[in-house]
Design a protein around this nucleic acid. Structure first.
Lengths: 118, 118
DNA sequence: CATACATTTGAACAAGTGTTCAACTATTTA
DNA sequence: TAAATAGTTGAACACTTGTTCAAATGTATG
């Protein structure tokens, strides 16, 4: 009688629970920002790119060669990853060397692998 | 002279490095599987749904009410999350209670927040 | 300066995605 | 059995996305 599961019709969960739930809601902006990061990792090409960068920094055409894709396609993806601060770059003459921006990205990838591998 | 950065033109990185890089490449299937998980987290609505499930299990129309969206929209998203084993569900009479499938998902979300908040 | 090369960029296209609407299933209750 | 309720589903739509191609930067080198 005390914990009869919330029927849905009029949404009559007890006040306290409603408040707790609403307080725990993620904000619109935060949800968007967070989803943008995950979305960036949510493409096979970008996953492959990031994997090549996990131990080394590499230039655009090295990545393109390794993945068997056009330099243009890789560059487009790198721009996206750059804008989201997922990779950083370093210019040296004609070449541009890309690397992961921070350790979080590496950890996110590793945790993703852990999840899919179990 | 020893570590002259790989010029790109003919991709003449030294053999050892090429081999190491190629060995570290992620496979096609693994990249796809991994990207599917991240893609699932890469939508604001799904992020919000998962956030409501971080501490409680909830039924579809509770989530819909909390987020101010239609039951149908939520149900479609939950199916996707279900198929990817990101959420699990429990049936009780007419109601279906959803919850996060495992701790990894929670950790991924938390780690994502950490990344965007710094 | 002219040439070569690494990378970036914009436009365009096919393919994929999220929401809505209406119809449907399944379960409870009268 | 009939009505009510919780949830699922499929089709349709506008919108977004990833790649390609061609053209444009920027930088070194002859």
């Amino acid at each position: 009688m005390d914990d009869d599961r919330d029927a849905c019709q009029i949404f009559h969960i007890d006040e306290e629970k409603v408040l707790k739930l609403k307080a725990g809601l993620i904000g619109e902006y935060k949800a968007l920002t967070l989803s943008e990061i995950f979305k960036a990792l949510g493409d096979p090409t970008r996953v492959k790119i990031l994997y090549t960068l996990m131990e080394n920094e590499l230039c655009v055409c090295d990545i393109a060669s390794l993945l068997g894709m056009t330099v243009s396609a890789i560059s487009h993806q790198l721009r996206l990853l750059r804008n989201l601060k997922i990779v950083k770059y370093r210019k040296e003459g004609k070449m541009v060397y890309y690397s992961l921006d921070d350790e979080h990205i590496k950890k996110l990838l590793e945790m993703g692998v852990t999840h899919v591998e179990e």
